[in-house]
């Protein structure tokens, strides 16, 4: 036990240096004025950006939900294939992750542009072109494309753990198709759903590159707001820190709600 504690020392100091200390600095900035006096003005000023916060949460939620809908059946198929084919399918899912994030998002710009690939294709097929770039839809598409693998990974890993014999047992007891899905597969994959949703929602709600590149100027998200306070023309690190803090609290709230789902599930298991 003592040895274990010794071994964990480097990690603990790492966490202190690069997580706890920066966090304290953020909190400090959030509650002080440029001259170093205590204030809650920064935090109360965040309220002005209420609509941006709501929009961020809304877009991230939509993207997360659609990712889940796409990833769930896909992950199930991958998890049941197994062997070589399964590995290759998994590779294909992960492949875009090897490319630079900016590059991937640029690629979507060229696809969705007014004279981009999508519209060229639509015109070629005699459909009228659509206006997607610089809209909320483009932002959501970008979020889904970039974060989908984070949904697939945890789902595949929980689904792989479902023993085929458990499904056979359900069949043996009279379940078929749909009831196996609702009574066995969904409850058993809940932990994967929770971590997948968290892993997609958290980066999506705080993104600024996607919204800037695909959303044009009109779709500012919280991430953009924070970015502007540090690097943009409205330089105000104190407000930036306050917004970050609020965002962090919001994410923690969302996560604890999600974990509540998982806990309830666990309770059914343990009590």
């Amino acid at each position: 036990m003592k040895k274990l504690r010794m071994l964990s020392l480097p990690y603990i100091s790492w966490v202190c240096m690069f997580t706890v200390v920066p966090l304290l600095i953020v909190i400090f900035f959030a509650i002080t004025t440029p001259s170093g006096k205590f204030t809650i003005l920064n935090i109360s000023n965040v309220g002005r950006y209420f609509s941006v916060i709501v929009k961020s949460i809304l877009l991230a939620s939509i993207a997360t939900f659609i990712s889940l809908i796409i990833a769930y059946p896909f992950s199930y198929i991958i998890s049941r294939i197994g062997g070589r084919t399964g590995k290759i399918a998994m590779m294909i899912v992960m492949l875009p992750m090897w490319m630079n994030f900016l590059l991937r998002t640029y690629a979507w710009m060229t696809i969705l542009e007014k004279n981009g690939l999508l519209n060229k294709l639509l015109v070629y097929l005699n459909f009228s072109p659509v206006n997607i770039i610089n809209t909320k839809i483009a932002v959501v598409i970008g979020m889904i494309y970039n974060y989908l693998p984070f949904m697939v990974l945890p789902l595949v890993s929980v689904m792989k753990k479902i023993e085929p014999s458990v499904i056979e047992a359900a069949q043996d007891l009279g379940s078929s198709g749909f009831s196996i899905f609702t009574k066995i597969i969904i409850p058993l994959t809940m932990p994967g759903v929770v971590s997948g949703v968290t892993m997609v929602f958290v980066p999506a709600v705080s993104t600024f590159i996607i919204s800037r590149m695909l959303g044009g100027g009109g779709n500012l998200l919280i991430g953009d707001l924070i970015d502007m306070q540090f690097l943009g023309n409205s330089y105000n690190p104190h407000l930036g820190a306050a917004i970050s803090l609020v965002l962090m609290v919001l994410i923690l709230l969302c996560m604890s709600v999600m974990n509540q789902f998982e806990c309830e599930d666990m309770e059914g298991k343990l009590v």
Binding site: S165, V166, D265, G268, K269
Partner: peptide, 16 residues
């Protein structure tokens, strides 16, 4: 109209 007791039980882990 047949039920099985599986070699490794195959109980449902999420149910009591």
């Amino acid at each position: 109209k047949v039920n099985t007791v599986f070699q490794k039980y195959a109980l449902f882990p999420h149910l009591n």
